[in-house]
Nucleic acid binder design. Structure first.
Length: 595
RNA sequence: GCGCCCAUGGUGAAAUGGAUAUCACAACUGACUUCGGAUCAGUCGUUCUGGGUUCGAGUCCUGGUGGGCGCACCA
């Protein structure tokens, strides 16, 4: 495989530089920008020209000669060029061997050991049980799952986790909203009455609503009530207090409402193919944080303010805003629980690295959590990382950006988006009269997921997404549909080929397929880059390029031409198919064989 | 006020500090409708601004402009 050749080249170049007196040389082998410049290029000559006080082009020339003399398997030639690049050309034989390797590795092609032996805990998509998930959550989920897959493919042990914030004022609002607005008649808005007459309240199905949407409505209605009526606001706050003191009826209602919320959320997550290894429930750990704060006070790390609240100094050592760790009434804050949970995670999984995939608005809170964790000896700041991502918003009337808000009813729900794209596909099938009715349903669902996921994953994670409801997601051009279509095309050709597949005689020289074969060389590098950046968009971009190369080749080359080259060309088609499939798998997209 | 993030053709985006800034959409022109035309080929058109670092800057530093977000007892 090409990685072996790269390793060998890197070793030789590094040794050569060391012999010249460069201590610890950094050797990069980059993809050459165009195929005329070979497969890889190194910039070491320019990089170390000053240290060696010699002309970079001369260094590159000498290095090239040296490498050629080394007789490295797979290296055809090395060419020093302009400012001081050394272009490296691989032999056709090596490139075809790599293609063979793709087929040999199959679904494991692209997997590597760069993070072997590391344990990562990755928190992402912690859903709020009071709201249906909108496109912001979708991005969080797809990104989080993508990072999980990338790290697994790189050999790390990964625990994907999430926190269900299932207690507090928000969930109490849902409880109240349910009691007050989901009753069938004019019975009292009373918990005790409800416990005895549950069938007098609507369930989501009876209302014709998805459970999470039902819950969202309860929440929105209660919030409106609380804002307009101080009595109701007080009632809701009392519910939180009653819940804390384990009032039986309140807990029964709490449990009932949560079941509804989770069933809706889980349905959406299952549809997306999302998965967690561990879910933390806030009510199980929210009180443990106070002990950590006490410990910090004892050690003199934190200080108690006059009003009783506890503060920590982060300005001096960390250069960030100080933060309160405990309220003046002695109750905990978000960060208080997070400290406990962080320690719990770290200990439970013996994690080397803990990361949080959460929106950029949490940036300061994350830094504060990491710093406090270090102050308490839970871990070092560099063991923790926040992986933010750009907002998903809607286009407002003026064409500007508007953040989604469940409260204002401006949020676009995940399921609605997928359904919309699915509808477009189904319409098309009906018009073209393709596939049986059952198959249409299955394929359309898969394609809709592919299009939506790809659209959310193809750009850099920090890039904001302004969502245009009218235009929805791309189904042509640089899209998941394009990639999927290309994959389907490869499979269709392979099906048609039948027995023509199998062993082949490699051509001595590459012809019209040269660029396509070359593109296959970089898949593994792309994965490495993606892991480094903790963003799967590189993979998506690579797939677009690969598909484009394939389609260009397909347009000018007859694959099933009945000649002795058929088997060779079919192997290339298959290798492209494998690579597309593996790449899409990293994005959480399952392939279909026809569309 | 302080801090963080973003700014690339008309639109949406890509580019470990590298070579001629790459795609797609839209617009226009064209292609044996075949091994799947949900495709392919072509035309048009781009790094917010001033300074700096570097052999080399869309990328790094710095001043500015515009937008988003966050700053102690909310979650």
């Amino acid at each position: 495989m090409v990685q072996d050749i790269k390793k060998e080249l890197t070793k030789k170049i590094s040794g050569w530089l060391q012999a010249l007196g460069v201590a610890d040389p950094v050797v990069q082998l980059d993809k050459s920008v165009v195929s005329e410049f070979g497969e890889f290029a190194t910039n070491v000559a320019m990089r170390y020209a000053k240290d060696l006080s010699r002309n970079p082009l001369v260094i590159a020339n000498e290095l090239g000669q040296f490498l050629v003399e080394q007789d490295i398997e797979g290296l055809e030639k090395a060419e020093a060029v302009k400012p001081g690049f050394l272009n490296l050309y691989l032999t056709s034989k090596a490139k075809i061997a790599h293609m063979r390797g793709v087929l040999e590795y199959g679904s494991a092609f692209g997997h590597n050991h760069s993070h072997q032996g590391e344990r990562w805990v990755i928190e992402h998509t912690s859903p709020n049980p009071n709201k249906a998930m909108h496109l912001g959550h979708l991005r969080n989920n797809l990104l989080g799952m993508g990072i999980v897959r990338l790290l697994k493919a790189s050999g790390a042990e990964v625990v994907a986790d999430a926190v269900y914030n299932n207690r507090g004022i928000a969930i109490a609002k849902v409880m109240y909203g349910f009691l007050a607005h989901m009753k069938k008649g004019t019975q009292p808005t009373d918990i005790f009455y409800w416990t005895k007459h549950k069938d007098e309240w609507y369930l989501p199905k009876e209302k014709g609503l998805k459970p999470d949407v039902f819950v969202t409505e309860c929440y929105v209605l209660a919030e409106k009530d609380a804002k307009e009526n101080a009595e109701i606001d007080k009632l809701i706050r009392q519910m939180v207090i009653d819940w804390e003191s384990q009032n039986e009826a309140v807990w029964e209602l709490w449990d009932c409402v949560l079941q509804i919320a989770y069933s809706g959320i889980n349905r959406t997550l299952e549809r997306l193919g999302s998965h967690w290894d561990k879910v933390w429930y806030e009510h199980e750990h929210y009180q443990k944080g106070k002990q950590y704060v006490e410990k910090g006070l004892d050690k003199g790390i934190f200080k108690r303010l006059e009003d009783g609240a506890v503060l920590t100094d982060l300005e001096e050592n960390y250069g960030i805003t100080d933060t309160v760790l405990l309220k003046n009434d002695g109750t905990s804050l978000y960060i208080t629980q997070d400290i406990a949970l962080t320690d719990l995670k770290r200990k439970t999984y013996n994690a080397d690295k803990l990361i949080w995939v959460i929106g950029p608005d949490q940036s300061l809170a994350m830094k504060q959590l990491f710093a406090v964790s270090e102050q308490l000896g839970i871990g070092r700041v560099e063991d923790f990382a926040h992986v933010p991502y750009g907002y998903v918003g809607l286009k407002d009337e003026a064409g500007g950006f508007k953040k989604m808000s469940s409260r204002e009813g401006t949020a676009l729900f995940i399921d609605d988006l997928i359904d919309e794209v699915k509808g477009m596909v189904l319409d098309r099938y009906e018009k073209e009269d393709r596939h049986t009715t059952e198959n249409r349903e299955v394929i359309a669902e898969q394609l809709a997921l592919a299009a939506v996921k790809f659209a959310f994953l193809k750009s850099d994670r920090m890039q904001g997404i302004t969502f245009d409801v009218e235009q929805s997601v791309d189904v042509q051009g640089d899209s998941g549909m394009y990639v999927m279509y290309t994959y389907v095309r490869t499979q269709s050709i392979l099906r048609k080929a039948g027995e023509a597949k199998g062993e082949f005689v490699a051509p001595g020289e590459l012809g019209s397929e040269a660029k396509l074969v070359r593109t296959l060389l970089y898949f593994e590098d792309i994965i490495e880059k993606s892991v480094g950046d903790l963003s799967v968009h590189h993979v998506a971009q690579y797939l677009l390029e690969l598909c484009s190369e394939f389609n260009s080749w397909y347009a000018k080359e007859t694959i099933l031409d009945g000649t002795g080259h058929e088997a060779y060309k079919l192997s290339l088609v298959e290798a492209v198919g494998v690579t597309i499939q593996n790449g899409l798998a990293l994005l959480g997209i399952e392939t279909v064989d026809e569309m």
